[in-house]
Amino acid sequence: MLSVEDLSISFGGLDALSGLSLEVTEREIFALIGPNGAGKSTVFNVVTGLYRPSRGRVTFRGDDLLALAPHEIARRGVGRTFQNTEVFRQLTAIDNVLVGRHAHLRSGVLRGAFGLASVRREEAEARELARRLLARLGLAEVADTEAGSLPLGYQKRLELARALAAEPRLLLLDEPAGGLNPTETQTLMKLIQRLRDESGLTLLLVEHDMELVMGISDRVAVLDYGRKIAEGKPREIAADPAVVEAYLGSGDGA
C-alpha cells in the first residue's frame, strides 16, 4: 500500500535517512521505533510531502507521492498527526474537526458567501459528522472549547479526530501516546485497533511507548541514525541483539 524505497535525505550534511526502505501493507499496524533523532519523524515528513528527499521513491496505492504537494497527498487518503500537537489553537474543537473535513466539502467562496441552501445542508451534515467523531473520541463536552486551551491529552485526541474526519486510508500517528497517562494509553490502543478492525485503516506509527508498540503492532521497524537496523514481528524485534544494542547502548531504556 505504502512503499518507501531507498530513501535518503540529509540536513546540512547530516544524514537524517540513508537508504531506507519500508513496505506497509493494507490493514496493517506498522510501528517505527528507534532512539531520538533516528529519523522517524523525518519519514513522516517525507511521506506527507513536507520534505523532499535527495534520493528514493515513495508510492502510495500507485501514486508517486514525491511528485505531489502536501494537500494533494492528504486528498489521496494519507492522514497524519504531529509529534508536537498542531491543533488550530484559536479554533474550537469542532471547527478543528471541520477543517479536517475540508476536502470532502464542496462549498466555495461564492456559494458560501450567499449562504445557499445547499451550503447550509452540507454544513449541517458536516457538523453532525464532526460531533459524532468528537463523541467517539470522548471530546463531546469540549466541542465548543478553543482547542488551544485544552489539556495535552485532549489535543492529541482532537488531532486524531481531525485526521479521521478526512476519512484517510493510511493514518500516520507521530507519538500518539506521548504525554498520555497509562489509562489514556490503554484507551488509545483499543481505539487504534478498532480503527484497523472496523474501519479498515492502515496505520503507521512512531512511538516510544513499548507497551503500546509491542501490544498492537503487526510489524515493527527499528531505525538508528537514519538506517533500518531491524524489522519484524514485535517478538522478534524484542529479542534482536542489534536492537538491544541500539537502545541499551545509547542509554535510552525501552
Binding site: 510531502g49 513536507l50 504537494a69 502536501p70 494537500h71 486528498r75 504531529f82 488550530f88 477543517v99 488531532e159
Partner: peptide
C-alpha cells in the same frame, strides 16, 4: 502544516 495535512491548498 496541519492545514495542508487536512487537504487545504
Amino acid at each position: 502544516i496541519a492545514a495542508q495535512a487536512s487537504g487545504v491548498h
